[in-house]
Structures are given as structure tokens and as C-alpha cells.
Design a protein around this nucleic acid. Structure first.
Length: 277
DNA sequence: AACGTCCACAACCGCAAACAG
DNA sequence: CCTGTTTGCGGTTGTGGACGT
């Protein structure tokens, strides 16, 4: 019934890995590199399924793995990233060198999640964020987003959609250049203004790395992206400063920000310039 | 010492995205 | 394009150790 398993269970070891299996896997990957997980067990002589090998390597055997002792700085980062990203463990882990998504997830489920829940009963968590009983739900449901990110076909996306303010239609006639002619302005096919598309290049840290892709507005048939005609990344909004700065700006983009935080991180002038609320 | 309960973490599972042919 | 395969992700479960009774 249901799906067939990813691999035949017969003759395949399950459960905890032995030291011998670890050594075989490590040696094989050091010699042959990662990838081709499906064939790896057979080639390496392991009685494990490929998925299990991959997981064991990524979460445990990789030489650059840090284990245990999550520092307060890391913890703080996890909390902030979780606030922004929800349960996107791999993205969160990607910002914590040496940490794996599994470790972050376990840490959250066992320590931070409970702590956050505990804080919710005293109304607010860190920085005044409310962590309610719905915390476990995906954050698309908990964050209402005045600004969205456009997801292009590329996995990495660095465009933030700033929709028109409610009750504040933009009048094309006010400008010499028609609004819809401005690069990075989004329009429907009937020419209706849908929002302003901004590029955020954080010097290798793209806003899309931080923002949940599910906040992103899918590029459906009704929308075409005028900025594409202008080439890829825009260089006019390039910020190259600290990670805190990036986070503060992202929080602002999501409409969930504290003024003092933005001032502290030097983001306030940019927020003003971008005309964010 | 024996048993039960709780907790942290490793591992598994199913789904979906990405990729290859 | 279409289809099959591989990889990556997030939720869930299983297990072993710590702790309490």
C-alpha cells in the first residue's frame, strides 16, 4: 500500500550506524567525493540505502561539522532567522557554519521552541515578537506581508516586491516617463500597476536567502517582469555591511521591525530612501 | 537495584523540486 | 516538452541515556 520504499529493505541495515560503517562511508567519500548516493552503498560496500548514507555524511561525518555547544550568538541568530524564515531549517543552517539543518531543527524543537512557547505565555518573545500557539505553523500564516519577493526561475532570487500603498494609486501622468516604462516596475498584461520590484544585493547574501520563498509572489501568466529587460541585478541598492544590517533590513521589508534596531544597524536611512512604511 | 518517565538526538519517511535523458 | 531519476527538505519516529520514584 502507498508508495514503494526508496530502497529495498531486504539486506539493508537500519538504525544507528556502527563505527565501522562510518569509517567505510568516510573513506569512500574522501576518495570518490559526494553524490551518486543511490549507487554509493553498493560501490562502497555498505548495507545501507543511499538516503541513509547521504544523511549520515551530511549530518554527522562531514569534517567541517561543529557539534553541540551552540553559542548564545548562534542561538540568537537561529531565533532571528526562524522569525524571518519559519521552519526553513536548511536555510537557517546555511547561515551557521558547521551546523546542520537536522541539528538546528532538533535544537529548536527541544530547546528554543519550548522557550519561545514559554515566552508566549508572557505575551511576547524577543524584540516584542509575539510567539503564539500557532508558532509551529508555517510562517506564511503568521506573518502578514506588505511586501513580497518575486521568485524567478532561478533558485536564488533577489527581488523584493513593494506593492502600492493601499488607497494610494500611483498616477503615471505625474511623470514624464510612464510608470510602466520604469525598469523594475511590475505590471499585469493589461497594464495595471502591481508594484515596484527592487533588487537587493547584499554582497553574496541575497535577501531571498533570508526571506521565505513561500512569501514570494509566483510569476503567473498575469504578471510579467519588466525589469528583466534591464538585465539581471541592479547595482543601485548594494549594501555591503554586517549580517545584522541585512537582518534588520529584511525585518523592515517584512514590515516587522523596530525603529531602534534599524537605527542601531544603520539601516534607517536606507529604509527612508526606499520609502518603506 | 528495579522500574518508569522524560528528553535529546539520530535516523527514517514521504514529498516535491531539480535534474538528466 | 515529457518522463523517469536523483537529491534535498521538513516532519516524525525510534532509541538510548539521564533522572526520579
Amino acid at each position: 500500500m502507498g508508495r514503494s520504499p526508496c530502497c529495498s529493505k531486504e539486506g539493508v541495515n537500519r538504525g544507528a550506524w556502527s563505527a565501522e560503517e562510518d569509517e567505510i562511508l568516510s573513506n569512500y567519500i574522501k576518495t570518490n567525493g559526494e553524490g551518486k548516493w543511490r549507487d554509493l552503498p553498493r560501490r562502497a560496500g555498505l548495507r545501507r540505502c543511499g538516503k541513509s548514507c547521504r544523511l549520515r555524511w551530511l549530518n554527522y561525518l562531514r569534517p567541517d561539522i561543529k557539534r553541540g555547544n551552540i553559542s548564545s550568538e548562534e542561538e540568537d541568530l537561529i531565533i532571528r532567522l526562524h522569525k524571518l524564515l519559519g521552519n526553513r531549517w536548511s536555510l537557517i543552517a546555511g547561515r551557521l557554519p558547521g551546523r546542520t539543518d537536522n541539528e538546528i531543527k532538533n535544537y529548536w524543537n527541544t530547546c528554543l521552541g519550548k522557550r519561545m512557547k514559554g515566552q508566549s505565555s508572557s505575551k511576547t518573545g524577543r524584540k516584542g515578537v509575539i510567539y503564539g500557539s500557532e508558532e509551529k505553523k508555517h510562517s506564511t500564516e503568521t506573518l502578514h506581508e506588505p511586501h513580497k519577493v518575486i521568485q524567478t526561475n532561478a533558485t536564488r532570487c533577489n527581488k523584493v516586491l513593494l506593492p502600492p500603498q493601499q488607497g494610494e494609486p500611483i498616477k503615471e501622468k505625474d511623470t514624464d516617463v510612464g510608470l510602466l516604462e520604469i525598469p523594475s516596475v511590475l505590471a499585469s498584461q493589461d497594464g495595471q500597476y502591481l508594484g515596484f520590484l527592487m533588487d537587493f544585493d547584499f554582497g553574496g547574501l541575497l535577501v531571498s536567502d533570508v526571506l521565505d520563498s513561500s512569501y514570494m509572489l509566483p510569476l503567473g501568466d498575469e504578471i510579467h517582469e519588466k525589469s528583466h529587460a534591464n538585465g539581471g541585478d541592479c547595482d543601485g541598492n548594494s549594501f555591503s555591511s554586517s549580517f545584522d544590517h541585512h537582518l534588520a533590513l529584511n525585518e523592515a521589508v517584512l514590515g516587522d521591525w523596530s525603529e531602534s534596531n534599524l537605527v542601531q544597524n544603520g539601516v534607517a536611512p536606507e529604509i527612508e530612501r526606499l520609502g518603506l512604511p
